[in-house]
Design a protein around this nucleic acid. Structure first.
Lengths: 230, 230
DNA sequence: TCACGGGCGTTAGAACTTATAACGAACGGC
DNA sequence: GCCGTTCGTTATAAGTTCTAACGCCCGTGA
């Protein structure tokens, strides 16, 4: 898009095959998890023989890396789409939940057990920053809303810590309280979603969505959401 | 322990080899993750040839299952040890954090990305209940503490839901508010620990322990812990 | 004390996997 | 239309899990 619009037929064909490979890869990941992803199986599904795929991806890890990149891209897009009207934290949470429930294995590919040796390339961390920026926008908007204006930020001790360690927010003009809320949003939503998707709630009879909603409520109210607050 | 105390030398030898296999397995998991666990490599480390291990574990999955069982057992034990004095939620949180940071891959083996086809055996879910019972004790104790007595449980809507869906708590006499707090404890601590252990905070400059402490504070205060509460 | 049986470790082999090397064919730019 | 780059092939190497068949040796029972 940024470079020359002239794409040779070869490049177009190559790009098409690469996306077809990724499509089959996502299919395998959805059904058996990322660890069971097999280049050989993908090749057979596409009617080619194994080593042919190495013309398109140098290794299994390179393919997975691109899948991770696409996953982050997809999450960043749905986040921005959900934040379109006015950057609502509730809309973000619901979009995140739907995105995660839609493709659990994709969620785990991004936020699940890390491969010990693997190091994320720079562009994926760039997309992460994009996601975080959208989240920070929503947190700032929430803090500016009428129901929140009544109180001066009590500046929790962690918010004070963040005031001195905010480089991860880039040059985003969010106050420390918003930074704290964004991190709490991330970790709490992930806490519920991760355990739910992993099936740790299956034996238990309650509705995970209601737990998710309760955590979101606590986040929006800025502290409420748990019983018996003194 | 429950059956005859007379163990034949063969049984003793067998048990010893099984634990030696598991020791090597933990070593591999700690260094390269559970997905890279190789029975062949373990056999070589022990000076045996590959198929010999199949006399002790029918399959790689059976070995991993036993590792998971041992992992749950270890967590349940440290939880009970931490709760020994008076079932303090703070002590539980710190014990959990130390336990997780000590062996990150062990934590992920229990709470990380699940294997799609895998179904946990009954005894591991039994140990999970044991862990949950210890957590519920601490939550009840917190609710009975002086600082919490001032208020009648506001009964969040999720707590109301739990009042009707509490079978997972077994016959534990915890009120719905305590059930809610226990689940929030679980998901929030897991949210921070999981992302921290996976390295999602590494690029960011803040101290994950302070975020963990902030989430714990919010849990103890029953709602505070986030800035700008209305 | 001796013999027998069962548990244990071995090697061989099947069916997989990722990945490399070498070869032939086909497609596209000049 | 030629010629070169790229693509897909087969062959091969080095792994993996797991089964099968064989032999040894330890420990139990007589």
């Amino acid at each position: 898009m940024a470079d020359t619009g002239t794409t040779t037929p070869r490049e177009r064909y190559r790009a098409q095959v690469r996306t077809e490979i990724k499509d089959h890869a996502w299919g395998q990941i959805a059904s058996a998890g990322a660890s069971a992803l097999s280049l050989n199986a993908i090749a057979k599904q596409m009617g080619m023989s194994g080593p042919a795929l190495y013309r398109y991806y140098a290794s299994r890890d390179e393919l997975i890396t691109e899948l991770i990149r696409d996953g982050y891209r997809s999450l960043a897009d749905t986040f921005q789409a959900a934040a379109a009207p006015g950057a609502d934290l509730t809309a973000l949470a619901h979009a995140l939940r739907r995105w995660a429930l839609d493709h659990p294995q994709r969620y785990f590919l991004l936020y699940g057990t890390p491969v010990p040796g693997y190091h994320a390339p720079d562009d994926t961390t760039a997309i992460s920053s994009e996601i975080m920026a959208t989240l920070l926008d929503a947190c700032v908007a929430l803090a500016d809303s009428p129901s929140e204006r009544s109180e001066v930020s009590p500046a929790t001790s962690f918010a004070a810590h963040l005031a001195d360690h905010r480089q991860w927010a880039g040059d985003h003009p969010a106050p420390p309280a918003a930074l704290h809320r964004a991190l709490a949003f991330w970790t709490r939503m992930h806490g519920v979603l991760s355990l739910e998707l992993a099936g740790h709630f299956t034996g238990m009879s309650f509705d995970p969505e209601q737990l998710f909603a309760a955590e979101l409520d606590g986040l929006l109210a800025g502290g409420a959401g748990l019983p018996a607050g003194p």
